[in-house]
C-alpha cells in the first residue's frame, strides 16, 4: 500500500560550471520528458540535480547515454495547503514520529503546493502522513 506512494526521483551528478543544467534540461526536452519539480543541491565544485519527471526510466537512460552519472532515489510528494501553516503541518507529523528529513524541496503547481521529501524511513513516513489525513502524490503519475 505504502509503496504506491513512493516516487522515483532521478538524481544527476553535475559539475558546478556554466551550461551543465542547460545540458541536462535540453536532453530531457529533446526526449520530450516533462519535469514536474526539480532542485539543485550544491557543494564545492559539484552539485546534484534532483528532478521528478513524467518518465523516470526514459530520463535515466537518456542522461546515462549522454555520459551523465544518474541514479534513482525514493522520495514522497506530500500535498500541502498553500496557506500559512501548510508546511508546519507536514513537518510536525514527521517530526513527532521521529522520521528524519534528509532533504526537501517544494513546488506550487496547478493542483496546489507539493513538498518533495527524502526521509530516512520512507514507508513509515507514508503511513504517518496518511494516518494524519494527509494526501500524497501517487507513484503512478511517474511512469
Amino acid at each position: 500500500m505504502e509503496k504506491s506512494y513512493i516516487v522515483k526521483q532521478i538524481s544527476i551528478f553535475s559539475e558546478n560550471r556554466p551550461g551543465r543544467l542547460a545540458a541536462i534540461a535540453s536532453a530531457l526536452r529533446d526526449a520530450k520528458i516533462n519535469i514536474f519539480a526539480f532542485s539543485i543541491a550544491e557543494a564545492n565544485g559539484f552539485g546534484v540535480v534532483r528532478a521528478l519527471v513524467d518518465r523516470p526510466e526514459d530520463a535515466h537512460r537518456t542522461l546515462t547515454d549522454l555520459g551523465f552519472r544518474v541514479s534513482f532515489t525514493d522520495v514522497i510528494g506530500v500535498k500541502m495547503r498553500d496557506e500559512p501553516g501548510g508546511l508546519s503541518e507536514v513537518a510536525s507529523v514527521l517530526g513527532d514520529a521521529g522520521i528524519n528529513i534528509e532533504y526537501a524541496y517544494a513546488y506550487s503547481g496547478r493542483d496546489g503546493a507539493v513538498l518533495i521529501l527524502r526521509v530516512d524511513q520512507v514507508e513509515d513516513a507514508v503511513r504517518q502522513i496518511l494516518d494524519h489525513g494527509g494526501e500524497l502524490l501517487k507513484a503512478s503519475l511517474f511512469r
Binding site: 550544491e42 557543494a43 546534484v48 541514479s71 532533504y103
Partner: peptide
C-alpha cells in the same frame, strides 16, 4: 576524479 556508478549517491553528504 570521477565518481563511480556504484558509489554515486544523491546525498551531498555521501559525496563529500
Amino acid at each position: 576524479v570521477e565518481v563511480s556508478e556504484e558509489a554515486f549517491s544523491d546525498k551531498i553528504t555521501d559525496l563529500m
